[in-house]
Write a protein that binds this DNA or RNA. Sequence first.
DNA 1: CAAATATGAATGAACGTTCATTTATTTTTA
DNA 2: TAAAAATAAATGAACGTTCATTCATATTTG
Lengths: 192, 192
Amino acid sequence: MAKKDKITDKKRALLKATLTLVNDHGFHDAPMSKIAKLAGVAPATIYLYFENKQDLINTLYLEVKSSFSVCAFKGYNKDLPVKKGFEIIWYNVADYKLNQIDEATFLSQCDNTPMIDEGVRKEGLKHLQPLLDLWERGKKEGIIKPLSVFILYAYTIYPLSFLMAMQERNLCGLPKKVRDEIFQATWDAIKQ
Amino acid sequence: MAKKDKITDKKRALLKATLTLVNDHGFHDAPMSKIAKLAGVAPATIYLYFENKQDLINTLYLEVKSSFSVCAFKGYNKDLPVKKGFEIIWYNVADYKLNQIDEATFLSQCDNTPMIDEGVRKEGLKHLQPLLDLWERGKKEGIIKPLSVFILYAYTIYPLSFLMAMQERNLCGLPKKVRDEIFQATWDAIKQ
DNA sequence: CAAATATGAATGAACGTTCATTTATTTTTA
DNA sequence: TAAAAATAAATGAACGTTCATTCATATTTG
């Protein structure tokens, strides 16, 4: 294995370990010592790859947010009809939230605590632009209600976070048939 | 002032201080020393009213959750027609989330981090029973889609948490007219 | 005055971070 | 190419600080 790859490997192991521990116990109950141990590395080694704990968390946040966006827009292009395009993105997001549970749980936690620096959080929002554009087009074409993007987001993407958490606690299963019902509810909420 | 009331006062001050500090910095960045100082009390005094920090947090959670429920069902009774009853509850919840911001923010944080013991969290859910009963009746009468309570919750109550957070960050205003639009989206999502 | 209430200082454990070394790898030299 | 030198990567122990909690003492109350 080339030298460059090895470096990346250790960094990745640290990010993964942080994800796991923060999910299980929260930011401040995920001590650097445990992160290091789980990543198979000495505590001091973390500081070769990250400035400090906050930098580690911020980096992880942007990394995960970015991978989320890549998934969200797989198979999507802006020339598709509004409903079809929305359907593709929505199911992508649903798949992500229900399969990449660790990553999705981490993002939920970040969105609801003062864990992430506000600037970094803004940075992570940029990835969603294609969806905002799609909504804008849908409104112009009279297909989607003239609601703000925040409301559209609150009713199409955000509920999935809740359902993911419920599934994770074994309170609620979400097979394909149910996901289709959920999509219908989503569409009913935002369609004109 | 009677003795009993004084005790209650100090306890209340401690709970309020905890709420504020946890909202601003998160559970583990809200040290007992600062909680005590903000409540105008010596650190040791906390332990006269609470077993330990986790007990303080759990108590606060149940307290807030309970006051939330009281608000949610104000003016509601189970003999109202399904849509009317739902409308009353929904607007109550919306008012709570948009006015009692500190309490609502705290609950959001609790719902998305491992801050609260799982047992205590289950305890806090019981208060919502009248809404679950209303949904059940709505389904029987063919007014509401036959979805699980989790999905109904995800599409009617949960989005308000997101919109509250956005309003709090000054990213989005929510005047009466917009709240009415949001209610319409909610109803479209769950109505048969 | 005795019981209840409250205190501030003290305690030990745990934390993030640093630092003097060691170990591994790469480059230079003969 | 093989030994020597230089550099990079990684380490574990140690530091100063902060934390939740306790305790001996003081104040308030009935």
